Computed example of a mutant assay.
Amino acid sequence: MRPLDGIRIIDFSRVLAGPMATQILAEFGAEVTKIERPGIGDESRSFEPMFDGGQSAYYSAFNRSKRSIAVDLKTDAGRQLAFDLAAQADVLVENFLPGGMEKHGLSYEALSAVNPRLIYISNTGFGQTGPYKDRKGYDTIFQALSGVIDLTGHPDGPPAKVGLPFADLTSGLWIAIAALTGLVGRAGSGKGCHVDLAMMDVQVAMLTLPAARHFALGETPKRVGTEHLGRVPSAAYQCDGGAWLFISASDQHWPLLCDVLGLTELAKDSSLAHNRQRVERRDEVTAALSAAIAQRDRFELAESLRAAGVPAGEVNTVPDILKDPHITARGMVDHFDDPERGPTLGLRTPARFSGYDPHRFEAPPKLGADTHKILSDELGLTEDQITALYDKGIVA
């Protein structure tokens, strides 16, 4: 048994945010049925990079442990099939532009009339209301508009995007939060709901601390590279040989850090004992730390700092962390058995629940792999009816 066993999710979303959310829910036990276009499917099936054999690694990262049914929503019969499946679902996730699902006869109003317990999540770029609601957008557009790109990079350099699809990933987490919150609310009220979740809203909500500085001080937060606006030291420092080490020290760590680095004069300076004073003398403190750290081997220094109780972490590359012994011991890198290419590496969903079976980690579905079974077992269609749908290209 898994935490979400028995929960049915119908997934009309594509590419990243929605599929990421429904993958999380699927691996915790929900039965996720992905609605895809015949012949094409989710467009991320064609996204690079590709595994040997032609399967998209991008698609595989966000669509594990689901079922796929290929249905042509441009046809009346296809729309009816999708409607009938949604009428049985606990949660629906979609990322069409506002009004897109309504054009297919799949609006919240239509579906909730026959399934009043449905949690219907509309994940759009700018929401169902507001002057930008009909705009299209991608991850980096939301990063730019929200101020995230303006905050990212070094002070003397241009703005930079986050190294991950930050807007998509954080929105995916919020879709999952919304689904689970809706289900908990339904348990008490007996009623479903419509969730208007805008990726732009998610990005603005992520501004937390920069916004707090603006509210408190009236300032426009600036790019600070790896440094922290409110703490010194908290930054990446270059060690001997060019490798980087991130050190983040509070007041209790300051004398310990100075001791490891042999900076006895800084340790004796009582005017640097408190973070606020070190922030005011940021340039002086940073210069002294940088000079001392540049003389030290990263491995040796990192071990010495951790032994002294000072928080420190190597700035790893992606291959570094994927091979890290702790990550290996935690089982974060695992493999699923793809029916065509065999064992295929992927990253596990991180939460671990005691008292339940381990979460699922199954291959992403081939396009339309479950169409026949779903039509037969869940919609109760006869073989003749199913054959006719295939022959007309309504399903695949």
Rank of each mutant, 00 (worst) to 15 (best):
R117Q: 14
E219G: 00
I321K: 03
L111W: 04
D11W: 05
K268V: 06
W244F: 08
I177W: 06
F12K: 02
A89P: 10
Q385F: 01
L266T: 09
D139V: 12
R8V: 10
L263I: 11
V195R: 03
A249T: 07
P116D: 14
D337Y: 05
I177D: 02
G153F: 09
G99P: 04
S46E: 13
S13E: 07
S376V: 04
L73R: 06
I69P: 00
S250Q: 12
S46M: 09
T264C: 07
N115L: 13
E300W: 01
G218D: 04
E94N: 11
Y108V: 05
A167Q: 09
G192N: 03
D196V: 06
A288T: 02
D297E: 13
C239Y: 08
L81R: 00
H372L: 08
Y138E: 13
S304E: 15
H104G: 06
E102F: 01
S271T: 15
N275W: 01
G380R: 07
L151Y: 13
P233N: 09
G127L: 10
F246V: 12
V162M: 09
C239F: 03
G172K: 03
G230N: 12
T286P: 00
P325E: 13
A61G: 11
E27I: 01
G241E: 11
G99W: 06
P3I: 04
Y108K: 05
Y58D: 10
L16S: 12
G331L: 02
L183Q: 03
L305E: 13
Y120Q: 06
E280M: 12
L92S: 07
R45M: 09
P365N: 08
F47N: 04
A292S: 15
L4R: 07
H359R: 05
I35S: 01
T33G: 00
Q203E: 13
P319M: 08
S68L: 08
G242S: 12
Q385R: 11
S13L: 04
K103M: 04
H194R: 15
H326C: 07
L97H: 02
E383S: 09
S250H: 10
S60H: 12
I121W: 05
T22I: 14
G309N: 03
R2L: 15
N95E: 09
T349C: 12
D391W: 00
A212H: 07
E227C: 08
V224N: 12
L217N: 08
G380N: 06
F62H: 15
D42P: 03
L301V: 14
V204Q: 01
S270L: 14
A292G: 09
R186D: 02
G342M: 01
V279D: 01
H104W: 01
D240G: 08
Y356C: 11
A369I: 00
V15Y: 14
E94V: 06
T75F: 03
Q277E: 15
E383D: 15
G393M: 03
D370R: 06
G309R: 08
N63P: 07
H214N: 11
D156H: 10
G368C: 04
F215P: 00
T328V: 10
Q80D: 15
G182C: 05
C239K: 13
C193Y: 00
I247Y: 03
L367R: 05
P38G: 02
D42K: 05
L106T: 05
D84E: 14
L367N: 04
A388M: 01
S112Q: 07
G309S: 05
